[in-house]
Amino acid sequence: MTDNAPVVRLDGITMTFSRGGQALTTALEKIDLEIRRGEFVSLIGPSGCGKSTLLRIIGDLIAPTAGEVTVNGKPATRARLDRDYGMVFQAPVLFDWRTVQGNVELPLEILRFDRAKRTARAREMLELVELGDFVRHHPYQLSGGMQQRVAIARALAFEPSILLMDEPFGALDEMTRERMNLEVLRIWEQTGTTVVFVTHSIPEAVFLSSRVVVMSPRPGRITNIIDIDLQRPRNDATRETERYFELVTAVREALHHPGSTGSSGSTSSTSSSGSAAGPRPPSTGRLAVEGAVG
């Protein structure tokens, strides 16, 4: 596979939840999106706009009503069976009966790694999230941030090519969240995985991402895609640059005025970062279509 081929390709994804044959909610409507290798893409939007639903469709936890998900050039189900996904949810979802080490080893047991390899690999991942001293602890003996780091270590343990994270730091306080953001960036840079990240926080989205996908609700659509051309590696100083504030404002405006392409246009035209370069995904084309419809 060439470096230019998308890791994730969404084609006209529509999701309608129904009960007893009767359609209830159109959570997503005709979503098109391409995510390239090594990108860090955030999904942001008001509550209920379908961010989690979209993430779950990408990860083949649920099937869309219509449309196609292609991951690493194959259907999402094949990708899941090939263990292409690492998942991190808002709650850490750790197992009480396993130690920290045991929790990280769980996917490796299911993937039938041999014992020595399991132990070594879990150790390595726990070192990566700086929990090397806590391998023998049980989840309830850790703080919320530490538990979430275990969940990240677990998701990375079998080297999935895509990391899907659904508001992983939503439950953390602002200070811990900022520290975790740095940590995630460091891990992302070290491992080179592709990340799809759902968040409610504009600063978090801007700080982490190479692109921010802005969504609007009822039905869930992509209204804007904003390239984040902040220099890497990013650190605490990044949060004080003028460009950072500009981008935060751009995302905020895109959220408040869905459909207005002004801010997005200005940011993408100045785009110079490597990861944001390359052909624009077809989803930007949707803006024009949407304008014509609405």
Partner: peptide, 26 residues
């Protein structure tokens, strides 16, 4: 069993028997 725990094992493409052994029984 926590619904998220089942989604997690699904994302590992875990066999039903492994889910029983590693999640449901404990």
């Amino acid at each position: 069993v926590d619904k998220a725990a089942l989604e997690l094992t699904r994302s590992y493409a875990s066999s039903e028997w492994a889910v029983v052994r590693k999640v449901r029984i404990p």
